[in-house]
Design a protein around this nucleic acid. Structure first.
Length: 618
DNA sequence: TCTGCATGCAGC
DNA sequence: ACGCTGCATGCAGA
């Protein structure tokens, strides 16, 4: 496969396919300011350009995470794609495509978890590292002109034979076209694929992180930096206080078993060493112990070792895994990006002359539930303001906290405690919304799958689950068998209950980000002081970025997404464009709502903050 | 020494 | 007997 790469004046690099048997005359996009062009080829890299039904052409390839990091590292940005692996996963399981050839086929290599090339997974890998060959543009034609493929071994490449990607793409298109909801599925596949591009781009760009601020924070809390494996001063002091209070001079507070034994010896009726349990107890050891646990967590999860490992050139580069969670949420690998503690967010600081635009969707899942179930009363409670406050204002419950606990209970399947007690009132006020969650739960209890707004279906329970259920109906079943089966069925019901809401919320978030990315792409490059990632790199430790123009070129002077967490995004933007970016983010939320729910009157409110430090976004 | 599990806690 | 995660740690068993 050959593709043509050309540089634009603004530093961004766009890609056009070489004209060959498979790609005759098709282009993804033309470079606005054609520069020197070159060709790329790789024996395993197969892609072609598909004309989408609604006009926008896109690259079709097997696995974005396999190729895009190296393309980005070489300065190449891709506007749209269709990720066959991610889309196959969706269509294989969707209840909307069960009779398709794709879903009926025996498991094949598209089902296997992608064996990610280690070098591809490395953000620093370039095309060269991956074995791409670079060549001068054949014939020296200007970008956009017809370019002949001068490699006879490649010129025979066709959509049909190209490593099977053409055939798979056609199977996917057929499955969508024959489904009951082709529009929704098409949107889901586009959003999922856009997410794959965004994930690679965010990983590449990284979250701006000031190690000197982080270090100062750690030193303030823990004492001066110490070698890995030794206790910082403050922890050592607290350990001494704990040992004294428990009269146990040899206690190792890091050993939960040691600690629990010691607590019991001292007459404290502690069943566990969990912070929540300890807080209920009255004893001189409790205060220093809680402090110790808090600081120990900071040290082990986000201490100096973490900082040295994960902050590279003043950027945190978590490895996002689109579709990594069954519900469609992203997972992450390495660095604990899903658990970035509020405690350390002060180290996330925009480059000089830049801002962080931090936005999170308020009460996203309840709003999603309201729209999914067309519960106009619940949607009205969230109109224009805090949805929980709206529930209180409607007289359903007395306090905002009650509204929140009750809503979470409805979506998670709580049956006991305060949440369980409040549920009936919620069900009376919002029968449609609560009816939807109940229906989803009952389906799960029967072992059936449920499906999100755009068509992602939950997995069916496994053989062990089925066997346990079957056992309960056997004449020989004991009361214990039946209890086990009932409990297991309820477990699965809570999973499916939550699946429809969490999964649909994930779809909204994907659409939101895709809209944001689209609008940012169209934004003119700002006159920002220094390139993002390279700003202040000369001699300023911590915030230094790479000076390699290839590494920073795709985002050199343009606002770009740098972080995503379920219902929250951060855009790193030139200060002059920050307000414009904030509007883009807000408009994109509304657009995402329309994409999923059309004209149904539900608001998706955001909290948007333009800040220097993530800690200031509250 | 290596590996898998349990614990506990960070996020949504 | 409240959903989805990732990760560090200690500990038991291989």
């Amino acid at each position: 496969m050959h593709i043509l790469v050309s540089r634009t004046g603004g530093g961004a690099v766009l890609v056009t396919p070489l004209q060959d048997a498979a790609n005759a005359g098709r282009r993804v996009t033309a470079a606005p300011e054609p520069g020197p062009a070159r060709t790329l080829s790789h024996p395993q890299f197969h892609a072609f350009v598909a004309e989408a039904e609604q006009g926008a052409p896109r690259w079709v390839w097997d696995d974005t995470s396999r190729w895009y990091p190296a393309l980005l590292a070489s300065g190449i940005r891709v506007k749209r794609c269709h990720d066959l692996r991610l889309c196959h996963n969706i269509l294989r399981n969707s209840s909307l495509t069960t009779s398709s050839e794709l879903a009926q086929a025996a498991p094949n290599h598209w089902d296997a978890a992608a064996a990610i090339d280690a070098s591809a997974a490395d953000a620093g890998a370039t095309l060269f590292d991956l074995g791409f060959e670079l060549g001068a543009e054949p014939g020296g034609s200007p970008v956009g002109d017809s370019v002949g493929d001068d490699d006879p071994s490649e010129s025979a490449t066709s959509v049909d034979s190209d490593a099977g990607i053409g055939a798979e793409f056609r199977r996917q298109q057929d499955a969508v076209a024959a489904s009951a909801e082709p529009g929704r599925l098409r949107l889901l596949l586009a959003a999922e694929s856009a997410g794959a591009l965004i994930a690679a781009e965010m990983q590449y760009a990284g979250l701006p992180w000031r190690t000197e601020i982080h270090d100062r924070l750690l030193t303030r809390e823990l004492g001066p930096r110490v070698a890995y494996g030794t206790r910082p001063r403050r922890l050592e002091e607290l350990a001494g206080q704990i040992r004294a209070a428990l009269a146990d001079p040899n206690l190792n507070p890091d050993s939960l078993q040691d600690l629990l034994r010691s607590l019991q010896r001292a007459g404290l009726g502690a069943a566990s060493t969990r912070a929540g349990e300890l807080k209920k107890l009255e004893h001189p050891v409790i205060a220093p112990l809680l402090e110790y646990k808090k600081l120990y967590r900071l040290l082990s999860a986000n201490g100096w070792y973490w900082m040295d490992t994960w902050i590279v050139d003043g950027r945190f580069h978590p490895d996002y895994v689109p579709g990594g969670v069954v519900t469609g949420r992203w997972a992450t690998r390495g660095g604990g990006a899903l658990q970035l503690p509020k405690q350390v967010r002060g180290a996330v600081v925009a480059d000089d002359g830049w801002k962080l635009v931090v936005a999170d969707a308020s009460q996203l899942e309840p709003r999603i539930l309201a729209a999914l179930s067309a519960d106009t009363a619940m949607a009205a409670a969230g109109r224009g303001s805090d949805l929980y406050a709206g529930i209180v204002a409607s007289g359903v419950v007395e306090t905002r906290d009650h509204a929140k606990v009750a809503m979470l209970g409805a979506m998670y399947g709580a049956t006991t405690g305060e949440s369980g007690r409040l549920l009936p009132r919620l069900a009376r006020a919002y029968p449609r919304a609560l009816g939807l969650t109940e229906t989803a739960a009952r389906a799960g209890e029967r072992g059936e799958s449920v499906t999100t707004r755009l068509g992602r279906s939950s997995p069916r329970p496994g053989a062990a689950w089925q066997a346990t259920q079957a056992q309960a109906y056997d004449p020989s079943a004991t009361a214990a068998d039946e209890r086990r089966a009932r409990s297991q069925a309820r477990d699965w019901g809570r999973f499916t209950r939550n699946f429809v809401v969490q999964g649909s919320a994930a779809e909204w978030a994907l659409c939101w980000m895709a809209e944001i990315r689209k609008a940012l792409w169209a934004l003119p490059a700002a006159d920002a002081p220094g390139a993002a990632g390279a700003a202040g790199s000369a001699g300023s430790a911590g915030s230094a970025g790479s000076n390699d123009p290839d590494r920073c070129s795709p985002f050199a002077a343009a606002a770009h997404l740098v972080f995503f967490l379920h219902d929250e995004v951060i855009v790193h933007a030139p200060a002059a464009q920050a307000d414009q970016v904030a509007r883009i983010i807000t408009d994109s939320a509304a657009a995402a709502g329309r994409l999923l729910f059309g004209d149904f009157p539900v608001d998706f409110l955001l909290t948007v903050a333009v800040v220097d430090s993530y800690a200031d976004a509250t």
